[in-house]
Design a protein around this nucleic acid. Structure first.
Lengths: 339, 339
DNA sequence: TTGTAGGCGTTATCAT
DNA sequence: ATGATAACGCCTACAA
């Protein structure tokens, strides 16, 4: 015996008043009789009336829905990030439409397209590893739907970004390793296309140079994040005449695979080779060999900041009717964590 | 220079035809001139027209949005589950509104309320550990908004559920442990209120009885999933005159904490005590001591099934206008995985 | 203080 | 083959 959620009209009819009277009563509008107001509120309560957000937003041309697109929710980094986004969103009566790209450009395009159709008020996205063309996202600018990138950001100026200072962070990691006696520091980087990879590489080189040592590109490998490619990278590194005494992995997941391979090769983890990584995920606490050094990237905070930025932009758009909005860029400081 | 997304009206004006003509042209309606159709489609393409899903769904009183509420997205079990939900949803042009309860009843109520305001077409939820009152969810029935529970389901008949057979699974675990020589099998269960805890306990007792041994309730502890409570549970077990030779943990996260504590107490993991668990999460591959036995619960599949069930219900509602819908209950078989 | 009317984008139903 | 109109739920300017 399903009935539909009560509407203002129904309340109006039952009370023999107009819909606008009900609307005003519910909104505590000043221009409404006290008696009417009470009767309306009472009935609304009884019927369990709830405003139809869809209708309101439809009229206002706002949905109060923010699309969030992530590569993989199962990575703790991203699940923390979306939690930060959600927390801030709830505080401001926004709601999260969820989608994953699974690190594939095609899927990313699809999800993003679906979200456009749903008329999200804004889009928060962390790019797939292969996204190097941003047309599907720049389309949003045309329609004044703000896009905020976080962590995996594009190489565009003039967009809104929340990111960590990976360059500095990587320099810090190299410094720490050098201070702790490492002389042959390797890097297992991510796909070349990613800005995040470029930043790491630059930081790595800068760090090495700062130590007045020469850069040896044999020590720089790349992975596509698959276990196979990470294994291959480790294999190459271990096969060097002069193998590394430290390995910096792109993130904690790459790190886990790198360690797994090294163990198979009887390497003594964090003895023969020091392992460093990015993200400092809580889950690494339970792993057999957490990285000796990890760069905390505060994913929850990145999510919060991204959503806060989104809300600022949306509020700005509301007032400044059509003025050009400056793009925002928030850089979250990182912390080198050791254990 | 933001413009708004083009509408049917705009196209109509530019082409000097009526809005309905444009609508029909776009929909490949038979009653429309070929020439008009082509001109409309061409312009729509040029302008990048996209139907406003909000408007359509508003008219149809459908949103094509399914609310999904989980305790903790950062648990791999739930991130896998939501991926299953998302996959099926996308295939059927549904979209996911995301929310977490953080295992708190109050937050659960809030999110669920927000989703009702957003007029989701349906709700898929895995309950918070403390939810033992279902009013906030039964409210949905009244308005014919289907609710599908998965994994953490309520103790209600007459609702739609997707779950695993935890009773049988637990019997299987106990069997396996017994076959492998364990005589003092302990259980670290979840909160009493949870149906999932009750099922485990029943299965545990059944399993022990099947071995013609007596049930010793000293071997049954409970945790609220906090590290502290799990530590305390392990502490009690290890302090027994006759300590266990096997520990079954409520899930892999509890397992990790249980192992962590046991290790501090110099227990040889999976030697002195065999550890068993539920979920068989991929992440345990990287942990120092994966459970010797784990009950695979196929979270991705549970998500898929839940969403499929939701779609069936929605389609049924579309045809059978007001007939009572039978509640569905899907039980996913589990598998004992060893390593 | 309260009612009426119009409009948001779309489509179904009539009418032309 | 095409156009005009009404309707979905809500809000708001305007009218009474």
């Amino acid at each position: 015996m399903g009935i539909q959620l009560p509407t203002i009209k129904q309340i109006a009819k039952q009370l023999n008043v107009s819909a606008s009277a009900v609307s005003r009563a519910l909104a505590d509008h000043p221009r409404i009789g006290l008696g009417t107001k009470e009767r309306v509120k009472k009935l609304a309560e009884e019927l369990g009336y709830e405003p139809n957000a869809q209708a309101i937003f439809f009229k206002q041309k706002k949905t109060h829905i923010i699309g969030v697109v992530l590569p993989f929710i199962r990575e703790e980094f991203f699940s923390q990030a979306i939690s930060g986004i959600e927390t801030v969103a709830l505080d401001h009566n926004y709601t999260i439409l969820f989608g994953q790209s699974y690190d594939e450009v095609e899927k990313e395009k699809n999800v993003v397209e679906t979200m456009k159709k749903q008329r999200v008020d804004g889009l928060i996205i962390s790019l797939s590893k292969n996204t190097n063309n941003y047309e599907h996202l720049e389309a949003f600018n045309k329609y004044k739907i703000p896009v905020v990138y976080f962590d995996r950001v594009p190489e565009l100026t003039d967009t809104n970004k929340v990111q960590t200072d990976l360059f500095k962070g990587t320099v810090d990691i190299v410094n720490w390793l050098s201070t702790n006696g490492c002389r042959r520091i390797a890097l297992i980087n991510g796909p070349e296309k990613m800005a995040a990879s470029a930043d790491r590489l630059k930081g790595y080189m800068q760090g090495i140079l700062k130590q007045k040592r020469k850069i040896d590109m044999q020590l720089v490998e790349a992975t596509d994040f698959s276990k196979e490619r990470t294994y291959a990278a480790m294999n190459s590194l271990l096969a060097l005449k002069n193998p590394p005494d430290a390995v910096i992995s792109f993130n904690d997941y790459v790190h886990m695979d790198a360690v797994q391979y090294a163990k198979q090769k009887k390497i003594k983890i964090n003895k023969d080779i020091l392992f460093a990584s990015y993200a400092n995920l809580p889950i690494t606490d339970y792993t057999s060999h957490p990285p000796r050094v990890s760069l905390e990237q505060y994913p929850f905070m990145q999510g919060e900041k991204a959503m806060q930025m989104m809300i600022e932009i949306l509020n700005q758009n509301k007032t400044d009717n059509d003025s050009k909005i400056n793009s925002k860029n928030e850089i979250i400081p990182t912390t080198v964590v050791t254990r």
